[in-house]
């Protein structure tokens, strides 16, 4: 099957202005120059967090935004990625990059197993099932100290600073550029996905899975594909996190709040859009970090309050997130396409 009839036969495709060179080139120039312009570690840490959560939000977006299967259990895949590569590094000396791939494969496998019962459910029930699985697996990680070292956590060994070792002991710049490359690659991949056959199937299943089935799309199969891709990518983010923070425990790596935060950056920015997760992360993470720095450990409850407020504001004001607002503005701009109006 083909997808692209000739340009002469069809009118031009409208696209978001945020995916055009006029926006993307200056943005890329800014993020590439960022570590030289802002050299304080606080800024660099925040920027790494923004990029990491943009990456994780985009991974979530593939399942929750494009395929419409909203999960609040992605911290599990994040934790699996972090633990798999770290334990392999400690126990076998496996290079973290290879550990990242193994972690992605393990997460995709676990996702497939979770998907078997969870995909029998839809909507809020599916969401609740992902929360349940998230808590079950986190509890297992706490209670299997022989494998995961339980609540005492895992300290990663210090390796020589290099890209090959995915470790930089003197500065954050190396980490920044690695997560930048990962994020740009994932966003480019998502832009491709959006226009690909696979992307259409995801979107069709999201809109009306029965109608998609009636057209011959095996909805269950594509839901599994979306879940596996999303889980594998989230696990890759987990490996990066482990190599950056150098310490893991189930309470800080796999809590429900991490799942909420991953989903929220995509929801705030705009689900099912390429740029949404970046916009969401760029807004949410700095606010969260500023509060953490300003108030310290005593303000630990403030971030969840902000997330709650963000959810309420999005629900009431703009359910399609920041991208919804951007797209509404673009629609108001003069366009040459017209639609019929009569019933």
């Amino acid at each position: 099957m083909t997808r692209k009839p000739t340009k002469e036969t069809l009118p031009a495709l409208p696209g978001s202005s945020l995916l055009k060179p006029g926006f993307l080139v200056p943005l890329l120039a800014f993020v590439v120059a960022f570590p030289w312009v802002f050299q304080r570690s606080t800024f660099q840490n925040t920027a790494i967090l923004v990029l990491l959560y943009a990456f994780l939000g985009q991974a979530w977006n593939i399942l929750g935004g494009y395929a419409g299967q909203v999960s609040f259990g992605h911290a599990v895949f994040f934790g699996i990625g972090a633990y798999t590569s770290s334990l392999l590094l400690i126990n076998t000396g496996l290079n973290p990059w290879l550990g990242m791939l193994v972690g992605a494969a393990v997460a995709a496998t676990v996702a497939a197993v979770i998907g078997i019962p969870a995909f029998r459910l839809t909507g809020h029930f599916f969401l609740m099932a992902t929360v349940g699985f998230g808590e079950i697996i986190r509890t297992l990680f706490v209670n299997l100290p022989e494998v995961t070292r339980g609540a005492q956590g895992v300290f990663l060994p210090l390796l020589e600073s290099s890209i090959k070792n995915l470790m930089f002991r003197q500065s954050n710049t190396g980490y920044y550029y690695i997560i930048l490359v990962m994020t740009v690659a994932l966003f480019a991949g998502t832009a491709w996905l959006e226009r690909s056959k696979l992307g259409y199937y995801f979107k069709a299943i999201k809109e009306d899975w029965e109608a998609a089935e009636a057209l011959g799309v095996n909805a269950t199969r594509y839901k599994f594909i979306a879940l596996a891709i999303s889980a594998a990518l989230t696990a890759m983010g987990g490996t990066f996190y482990a190599q950056w923070v150098l310490y893991l425990d189930p309470y800080s790596t796999m809590p429900l709040m991490v799942s909420v935060q991953i989903a929220l950056v995509a929801i705030l920015g705009g689900v099912g859009t390429v740029m949404g997760p970046f916009l969401g992360a760029a807004l949410l993470l700095p606010v969260s970090e500023v509060i953490r720095v300003a108030v310290g450990g005593g303000g630990r409850g403030i971030s969840p309050m902000i997330y709650g407020l963000a959810i309420i504001l999005i629900s009431v004001w703009q359910p399609n997130g920041i991208m919804g607002w951007v797209q509404a503005r673009e629609r108001r701009a003069p366009q040459d396409q017209t639609g019929g109006a009569e019933p």
Partner: peptide, 24 residues
């Protein structure tokens, strides 16, 4: 109708052809 309202007309038509492995 069960159309995919957020997809374009062309994308809807492409999905209609999903079950057939048409050449270009």
């Amino acid at each position: 109708r069960a159309l995919f309202g957020r997809l374009t007309v062309l994308e809807n038509l492409e999905l209609g052809a999903y079950a057939r492995q048409y050449t270009r």
